[in-house]
């Protein structure tokens, strides 16, 4: 205990500290650190240009999870063991734990019958995870895969390019109306709300996942993202996820994104289509390699 401070002062200090923490973990602006005023881009809005990357385990599972031996498991004599197709990967194929990115540390509010589908997705992970086949990642997953992505913000356009699978999305700055066709990356319409770029995403198909843990959605998915600069090299990323066919209520994820500050940082080419040809088509070679 610090001498000379009255009980009231300590209580106030504690309250102030609590307030700061709460403010930092919510979308509030105008107070504490969240009031960081970003340098302006040529469009007069906060400058989001740069190469960004998440640093968490959300791509394994957006919910809280402990580390485990592998993504694909089978029953062993004393508990789950790596399934045969991933056994050779050893520790490299194991899964790091994480406390999840869902606000409030909660779980995804699946409708009861939808939980069964997630379980099935997990059991058939090797067949079903779109990432295994190098399919386009969808939103929000593209933003927290273990690859960097780049935001191009000019006075006329905002454009996202992702290293993974060379995925892209143009952010419409004028609403073109309902998406004319469903797509993997959806239709993105952006607007500025103070310090935040808010992107309203619709027009998704039902084939992308949220992570490797089989968390999924229907083609009624609606994602509202907020990108807010919280410092020279940090963005706060928030996404509110709504899908009345799959979830009982909207849920929200929040995470920091980090600027790749290396002087030579750049998006490398990652055309994984080539990398999965053997997996997807190798059995139809004239002389198939042993499997």
């Amino acid at each position: 205990m610090i001498k000379g401070l009255s009980g009231t002062t300590i209580a106030l200090a504690a309250a102030a500290l609590t307030t700061t923490l709460v403010v930092n973990s919510t979308t509030a602006v105008g107070q504490g650190q969240a009031a960081y005023r970003a340098p302006r881009a040529s469009d007069g809005h906060p400058d989001l240009n740069g190469i960004w990357q998440a640093m968490n385990t959300a791509n394994y599972d957006v919910e809280a999870h402990v580390a485990r031996a592998a993504m694909a498991l089978r029953a062993g004599p004393y508990g789950p063991l790596p399934a045969a197709p991933v056994l050779a990967m050893g520790a490299i194929g194991s899964v790091p734990g994480g406390l999840g990115v869902i606000d409030g540390g909660g779980e995804i509010p699946y409708k009861p019958d939808m939980l069964a589908k997630r379980k099935e997705n997990q059991e058939k992970w090797l067949e079903r995870d779109p990432e295994i086949k190098c399919y386009l990642p969808g939103i929000p997953r593209a933003n927290y895969m273990p690859f960097p992505f780049q935001i191009f913000q000019s006075s006329k356009a905002i454009f996202f390019a992702y290293e993974y699978a060379g995925a892209v999305r143009n952010i419409y700055l004028k609403d073109p109306g309902p998406a004319p066709v469903d797509s993997w990356m959806g239709q993105a319409v952006g607007r500025w709300e103070g310090e935040s770029l808010v992107i309203d995403n619709t027009g998704f198909n039902d084939t992308t996942w949220f992570d490797r843990a089989g968390n999924f959605h229907s083609d009624k998915l609606h994602v509202v993202e907020r990108f807010t600069r919280t410092g020279p090299d940090h963005l706060r990323y928030e996404a509110t996820i709504e899908d009345p066919e799959t979830f009982t209520k909207p849920w929200k994820i929040t995470m920091p994104l980090y600027r790749r500050v290396e002087p030579n940082a750049q998006l490398m080419e990652f055309k994984c289509v080539e990398f999965v040809e053997e997996l997807m088509y190798g059995q139809w070679r004239k002389n198939p390699l042993p499997r």
């Binding site: 040529s42 240009n49 000019s154 356009a157 454009f159 390019a161 060379g166 143009n170």
Partner: peptide, 24 residues
Amino acid sequence: KQIVQTKDYVMILVEMNHDARIIP
């Protein structure tokens, strides 16, 4: 094709196959 220019880059998106040429 879509072209976006920023202070440090030119981005040329090629419709087929969603190839973004990122040019410093």
